[in-house]
């Protein structure tokens, strides 16, 4: 038992029995959007909330932002109540399908949110430059947001969420509706954020996208958390081992290799030779990026 009076650094997110119910007035029934969630996210972690539509991911994030009130249970952000200004000073949020003021351009948008958070003057100018660079929106600075593509909206949303340099980011479906290229860029961004030491909690119903970034995930179904753990532990098939050889092998070479492995005591007949498949996504990215005159639609032309 730890008896030290020096508190351990508070968890970035902690929920205890967090529950949200909506009464369905016309049916005299109750819809349980979130059911007794216990969750702990450590500082510096990238945490994924997975689950099909309607499983309670957005509800969890809204509760953690104080946008709605829990029916039961408690939520803490850095040990603070989520609706407090202190908590929200340390939190950035990218909502699901974000929509911003269509009449502002990229610069104006960031300026508006920055000022709201109390960032002003040179500091704000510098911050805007950094963020535009970080999310790669150089060509969106002067354009009104109504002309933005979905991917650009997600990226300006990310920049907006980061404007006051928060320690914790909540991203609701950051890659939903974005093309694979944009998705990949957003994933890279999340990794960059992790390197900067930020905590990231994001939700997604597209499992593949979670793989490369999340340290840990929780899987939701019908408002309940049904599984939680590190990606490593959840995805490793402990009963097998894969060896990757970056060359083609003829049947004779394969036979020799099988014998060689057999010497280690593994049952030779259970060894299978296959060719690794590219995922369609990897193929797409490789092909598009290999074009000699490739320029991202969203990046400035040379």
């Amino acid at each position: 038992m730890e008896t030290s009076t020096v508190a351990a650094p508070p968890l970035a997110v902690e929920t205890i029995g967090l529950t949200k119910r909506y009464p369905l007035t016309w049916k005299r029934k109750v819809l349980v959007a979130l059911d007794g969630l216990n969750l702990q996210v450590k500082q510096g972690e990238v945490f994924g909330l997975l689950g099909p539509n309607g499983s309670g991911k957005s509800t969890t994030l809204k509760l953690l932002l104080g946008l709605i009130v829990a029916t039961e249970g408690e939520a803490r952000v850095f040990g603070l109540p989520p609706e407090s200004l202190e908590a929200r000073r340390r939190v950035g949020f990218l909502p699901e399908n974000p929509y911003f003021y269509a009449f502002l351009n990229g610069d104006e948008t960031l300026r508006f949110y920055g000022k709201l958070c109390g960032v002003t003057g040179d500091k704000l100018d510098k911050r805007i430059e950094e963020l535009i660079d970080l999310v790669g929106l150089q060509n969106g600075r002067e354009r009104p947001l109504r002309s933005y593509s979905k991917g650009m909206l997600q990226r300006i949303g990310l920049a907006q969420a980061l404007i006051h340099d928060p320690d914790l980011l909540f991203l609701d479906e950051p890659t939903a509706g974005v093309d694979p290229l944009g998705s990949a860029q957003i994933r890279d961004l999340i990794l960059k954020l992790k390197k900067m030491g930020k905590t990231v909690v994001f939700s997604s119903h597209l499992l593949e996208q979670v793989q490369e970034v999340a340290d840990r995930v929780a899987i939701f179904s019908l408002g309940k958390k049904v599984l939680e753990g590190s990606l490593e532990s959840l995805l490793t098939e402990n009963q097998s081992t894969q060896v990757l050889i970056p060359a083609e092998m003829n049947p004779e070479q394969q036979e020799r290799l099988r014998k060689f492995i057999g010497q280690t005591g593994v049952n030779e007949s259970e060894i299978r030779f296959t060719r690794p498949h590219l995922s369609l996504e990897q193929l797409y990215l490789r092909t598009v990026q290999a074009q000699p005159d490739f320029v991202s639609k969203d990046s400035p032309r040379p």
């Binding site: 932002l65 946008l67 200004l85 929200r88 000073r89 939190v91 950035g92 949020f93 909502p95 699901e96 399908n97 974000p98 929509y99 911003f100 003021y101 949110y113 709201l116 958070c117 109390g118 949303g157 907006q160 969420a161 006051h164 909540f170």
Partner: peptide, 14 residues
């Protein structure tokens, strides 16, 4: 409707 309010109220704004 357009949920711009989420982005504002998630900031330190009462």
């Amino acid at each position: 409707d357009k949920r711009t309010i989420y982005t504002i109220l998630a900031k330190p704004v009462r």
